[in-house]
Amino acid sequence: MPDARFLVVFDADSTLIRNEVIELIADEAGRGREVAAATEAAMRGEVDFAASLRSRVEQLAGVPLASFTRVLSRVEPTPGARELVEAIHRRGGVAAVVSGGFHEILDVVAPDLGIDVWRANRLVSSDAVLTGEVDGEIIDAAGKAAALREWAREHNVPTDRTIAIGDGANDLQMMDAAGLGVAFNAKPAVRRQADVVVGPVDLAQVIPLLP
């Protein structure tokens, strides 16, 4: 991969996009309220993320893949997302996303927003219906930090020229690994530990922080 001047790694849900995608999918199964409460606890860091994700995904069993069209129609990019990605590219940077969410959604949303590289969990399906399982190793806090380091190496970007942007407890290791950790639309624990806190829900506010 070509060298880059810097690397920006976004969380997806409630950061690059306004939604928590697992809640949108759970709505298709009539279980949105229960899954939303469990997601909130995971983002506050009250429960183990991987265990929480597996239990939440179990609630998605039986959702047909055809309903993902409806889910995608409800996904809203965060205000300023396109402007920030465009600014990253203008300045010679790479825009990346690592998510505890799902490739099934991110594979559509990320390229539309101009993201260069992304990584997320995958849902298992059988006969075009979700089984309620996650395929392979779950991308958790450690997985997010590992992705940031891997992409920095691939693009020959020093750690001090990396930026991580997130909102939940599972973003803290990634933010700690980065040269600059930005809390965006974030939970209190994340705001306390971040290098910078962005209050307005507008990703264009991050542009002045770019190298």
Rank of each mutant, 00 (worst) to 15 (best):
G62V: 01
F49D: 02
V75M: 13
A66D: 12
E46W: 07
E46Q: 14
A51Y: 05
T39Q: 01
P77M: 11
E46D: 14
V47I: 15
A81D: 02
A50K: 10
S55G: 07
L84W: 01
E86W: 00
R74A: 13
L84A: 07
L84H: 05
E86P: 05
P79A: 04
E83Q: 13
A51G: 14
E83R: 14
S67R: 15
P77C: 08
V75A: 06
A50G: 12
R70L: 03
T78H: 09
P77E: 02
Q59V: 00
G45N: 09
R70D: 15
L65A: 08
L72H: 14
V57A: 02
V57S: 05
V63Q: 07
L60R: 00
D48W: 10
V63Y: 05
V75K: 06
V57N: 03
R44Q: 13
A42H: 02
L65H: 10
E76G: 06
A66N: 04
V47R: 14
M43D: 00
V63G: 11
A61I: 07
E58H: 13
V85L: 06
A61R: 14
L60W: 03
A61T: 01
R82A: 11
T39H: 00
S55D: 08
P64K: 07
T39G: 00
L84Q: 02
A41Y: 01
G80A: 00
A81Q: 09
P77Q: 10
P79C: 08
P64Q: 10
R44M: 11
A66M: 09
A61G: 04
A61H: 06
G45Y: 08
A66P: 02
E46H: 13
V47W: 09
L65Y: 10
V63A: 11
G80L: 04
S67L: 05
R82G: 11
S52C: 08
F49W: 08
L65F: 07
V57H: 01
S52M: 12
